[in-house]
Design a protein around this nucleic acid. Sequence first.
DNA 1: CGCCGCAACCGGCATAATGCCGGATGCATG
DNA 2: CATGCATCCGGCATTATGCCGGTTGCGGCG
Lengths: 160, 160
Amino acid sequence: MFIITVILSAAAMSGNMQDTDEIDRAILSILSREGRVPMKSLAGRIGLSRSTTTERVSRLERKGIIRGYRADIGQLDEGQIHAFLLLTLKRTPSIGVLDRLAGFSAVRKVSSVSGQLDLVVEVEVGSINALNELRNEVATLDNVEDLTTAIVLRRDIERS
Amino acid sequence: MFIITVILSAAAMSGNMQDTDEIDRAILSILSREGRVPMKSLAGRIGLSRSTTTERVSRLERKGIIRGYRADIGQLDEGQIHAFLLLTLKRTPSIGVLDRLAGFSAVRKVSSVSGQLDLVVEVEVGSINALNELRNEVATLDNVEDLTTAIVLRRDIERS
DNA sequence: CGCCGCAACCGGCATAATGCCGGATGCATG
DNA sequence: CATGCATCCGGCATTATGCCGGTTGCGGCG
């Protein structure tokens, strides 16, 4: 097999398409910080035309590399209580539950995990009452089989 | 101070402005899931005009309640495995365990929690083998009663 | 009690961004 | 050297945005 070297108009570097190349990473880097930036200015920053940039972004979306765009919600009213909700689902791919979870502003992070658990949900609320309400709402979501709540008493180690 | 009551054209209910009212919460709920939705369609969904909706969103941004917009990236840095180690201790508190955990460079975050669990440990390793070794080392630490490992398959939500 | 200011709302118009094409280019392949 | 393919660009009709003035309901004040 020959070495596939593509010199693109002296601007882009070599790249076999396939997955994410240098340009895609630049796009992801920008969009992960400025999710609402217009395609036109994104294009300008990475040095491609608007239509090409749009096409690349759509491809990243289709491929699932960009799963969506989220507004980054700050504290609604000074949340202090952190907790983990450990969820077991009845059926495991559950888009519905994720959508609902994303709707709670208290939800900070959701991870799909292997093992008996299915989701680790990190939440931040302003009061124990709010936590209880959230807990009840999450527990009664369709497809949620089991829910364990663990309130963070102390943050012992936090890096990076 | 008097109660500021705003009756909005028979559509919205009462609400004191000040912070976030019912409508703002609707906006946040939608934007937290669809960060790139056009203002026009956002407006349509919450039942206000485009300009009013835009003004509300800008206010949320100015107030810092919306911190920004992020593209939700799937796998960004490949090769890194994230996992939660859910620890139950024989006796709590246990300074010894925390010291030992801090000694592992793979340990990213440790939270003391209430409930049946005692510690939620977030780790980041380069391979499944590394995770297994780490798991074994942690499990055999003095004072560790039980250890559940949950590998993060996918990061579904991550804010801030 | 009428007037003013304010906050929240709406609609409209010029400008900017988007969606959707067709067409060019470079490269591997038969 | 013709064909297919991936990538890129530009242009035009459509849509969204930024910015403005105008309306409405209500508390404050003379």
